[in-house]
Computed example of a mutant assay.
Amino acid sequence: MTALGFLYPGHSAEDDYPRMEQLLGSDIRLPVVHTDIGEDAHRVDALLEMGSAARLAAGVEELRLSGAEAVVWACTSGSFVYGWEGAHEQVRSLARSAGLPASSTSFAFAYAVRELGVRRVAIAATYPDDVSALFAAFLNDAGVEVVSVRASGIVTAAEVGTWGEAEVLALAREADHPDADAVLLPDTALHTASWIPALEAALSKPVLTANQVTVWEALRLTSRRVNAPELGTLFTKEPLVQA
């Protein structure tokens, strides 16, 4: 049995995780511990506080008790908002606190893009313009070319969590670009786990979503490989990225 631990901010789309656990099958568990988000706002100051070391450390002991072999901060905006170097320090601090291999959803996107051999991406973001631009800058620092950004301007994770398949598909289509090799949906508050094959079929290219890449990153940290076509192209590729 492999347990992969996730620190998830608040309550929005955490039900993606039991859904993905079911799709992965086998002997993999995905325990989720909720962190206190403070103010629910896609605003830089609120996101910096949401991703603070103290808030993350508060959930670490519960994850250790779950038997987790690795921990991923399941929040994109609460990591890339720190910038490339700051996000690295956030993960190092989390690893020290947990005594486990650690990462975040922002780095999960960077590694997943590399895993697919993708060079150019389009971003389908629920965030406001300024926060979406910070994610694009983070990807640029990771060596990924961003060819388009679609920002929906939603302020709260609570609102994002109410979106269904139609809204998610519309966002992905609006964000897609002819030069993009893949489309990225970066918000872990957005439900996507049940709709990835439909998104990829509609766009005729790989689609990476926040909760999907977060689970893939935890598997990577533990050197596990699972073929799960219902979780999209990312879960059917032969490994390119070394742990």
Rank of each mutant, 00 (worst) to 15 (best):
T2Q: 02
A3T: 13
Y8D: 08
M20G: 04
L23H: 01
D27C: 12
P31Q: 00
I37F: 12
G38E: 09
E39D: 11
E39L: 15
D40V: 04
E49D: 13
A58N: 01
V60N: 03
E61S: 11
G67V: 01
A68F: 00
E69S: 14
W73I: 06
C75G: 15
C75R: 01
T76Y: 04
G86C: 07
S97G: 02
S97I: 01
G99P: 11
S106F: 03
A110M: 09
L116A: 13
V121E: 08
A122K: 04
A122C: 03
D130H: 14
A133W: 10
G143I: 13
V147A: 00
V149I: 14
V155P: 00
E165K: 12
L171M: 14
A172W: 03
A175H: 11
D176H: 10
P178Q: 09
A180S: 10
D181W: 04
V183I: 10
H191S: 08
A193H: 09
I196V: 15
P197W: 03
L203C: 11
S204F: 03
A210W: 09
N211V: 09
V213A: 09
W216T: 03
L219M: 14
V226C: 13
A228K: 05
E230V: 02
E230S: 13
L234I: 11
F235K: 10
K237A: 13
V241N: 04
V241H: 06
